[in-house]
Design a protein around this nucleic acid. Sequence first.
RNA 1: GCGCUCGUAGCUCAGCUGGAUAGAGCAACGGCCUUCUAAGCCGUAGGUCGUAGGUUCGAGUCCUACCGGGCGCGCCA
Length: 562
Amino acid sequence: MRNRIASLVESSLHAANTAQELTLSTFPSVIIGTPANSDHGDFSCNIAMQMAKEERKSPRQIADIVIRHLGNGNGMLARTEIAGPGFINFFVSPSAWQSCLLEIESQGDSFGCTTTGGGEKLQVEFVSANPTGPLHIGHGRGAAIGDTLCRILAAAGWDVTREFYYNDAGAQITNLALSVQSRCLGIEPDDPRWPDDGYQGEYIKDLARSYQACEVVEASDQHTTALGDPDNLDAIRSFAVAWLRREQDLDLAAFDVRFDVYTLESGLYSAGRVDAVVRQLTANGHTYEQDGALWLRTTDFGDDKDRVMRKADGGYTYFVPDVAYHLDKWERGFTRVINEQGADHHSTITRVRAGLQALHAGIPKGWPEYVLHQMVTVMRGGEEVKISKRAGSYVTLRDLIDEVGRDATRFFFIMRKPDAQLVFDIDLAKRQTNENPVYYVQYAHARICSIFENAADKGFLIPDNPSPDELACLTTTEELQLIKLLSALPDTVVDCAIHFEPHRLTYFLTELASCFHSFYNKNRVISEELALTKARLYLLKRTAQTLKSALSILGITAPERM
RNA sequence: GCGCUCGUAGCUCAGCUGGAUAGAGCAACGGCCUUCUAAGCCGUAGGUCGUAGGUUCGAGUCCUACCGGGCGCGCCA
């Protein structure tokens, strides 16, 4: 509806220009807003005020010209008005709103989807947790935001690939292997032989036991049988990675998050891609030797200090394989890449982009794009739960899902803007009361389904593809408001996709549920009036459809009973 | 100190690429179930949008400076 009005205004502007009532031949892009106050109509446009200065006419004069060339859009508009300093307000006719329902029906399960992205190849990398421990709450937020973003972008017409990168080659993996080895040998963390910065979590004990029992591990891309030999550090290393990968896979599966591609850091080394990147950077003249290390002059590309690529001990710093990895993404044809990660890693952005620029590979400056989520604070019993991976005392994603449920966990993680800090109150999320917005929304869906059951018992059939006459009785403010909200789903999904902000969809759902609950309390659906009953059942059918579509984009179920 | 980010009602937060009288939930108070799910609805109360300047027809939104919280600033990842 919004788009239709926008194009109506655009053609009006051109018509006015042809009639020489407007002198400008190019116009600012037409933005259709939704007024906060319903007295100001269903939509409004500020184009007249934007053009006033250049056009050298008063905003109200321009608005008047636009309106005269506007017509009523084939009956779409009941009326238009000029208001305030020069707003053009649009009042959509009830019949136009009613016909939106038919459009929603015709789109079925794909209602909410658009072709905005034009099928562009786009990759989202998210979670990418190191295989050194179970997924914790911070990963949970990343998983929820990343996964939802993928669903949103796919719905908005992008060709989305979901990718998980894991660092199975760095110093922290050696550290992991040493920790497991120590446990195999019965060395405790307070023992002087315990490795510096060893991983102390309970899971390391489980891992060691599993290794010594020569167990077999099948993970998404890791298949390993433990040798059981505590002296074979390489065997421990690969087994430990596989074992933790399996744990993470189970966590993600429990969260209904899946990936298309897993890329291993070790694979970049074995394919020679890391060395190739270093050679290229050196050949391009952006490196220098100092203090026995090889440096990249990232300051040439906006970084605040140069970065070490190859340490004095000969090993590479993590950021070199990172650059190699992103070059690989580029070469796979992803003109757009979005990396979803914790804000504590934000310093890598400049570094990675600088490395990519220094390759002279024709990669755009702002590539890849980033979505950073802020820290999660976990509250339990009114106290903050401290997260410490080394000490092993932390709330895992799995704990949370088991305790709170998948739907509520997903909803809570995405209902805040990614770049705002999030307080996850476990006690609150567990409460199955109206304090919990996810139940509020799901309840609306269940309530509608319950009405359908009652209607079926009384022999009412919900019409398919009803005629305009059959819908003409949907005229109350609540009914039209409900339709207006339903029809906003596709725009909302596009907004989420463009701004990388899934939380907008949770607000949409809450508003829609609220609108339905109001309607429900004010009006009886099943009544003596046959025509009205049928029309309202149809309206609710479309409401349930919209709730379900939006929830499914968030990966949340739409229960039929609660 | 430098960089990123946040600061809106008692609390948790929205505010749609700058728009009209700043919104929601929770908490508080008062109402609504002999009829489709009260996990609901309606109403009341609650604000100097951190502070001070600036940009313009118009600023919670953009710019600058300061104040306050978080994160980062390693030859760790």
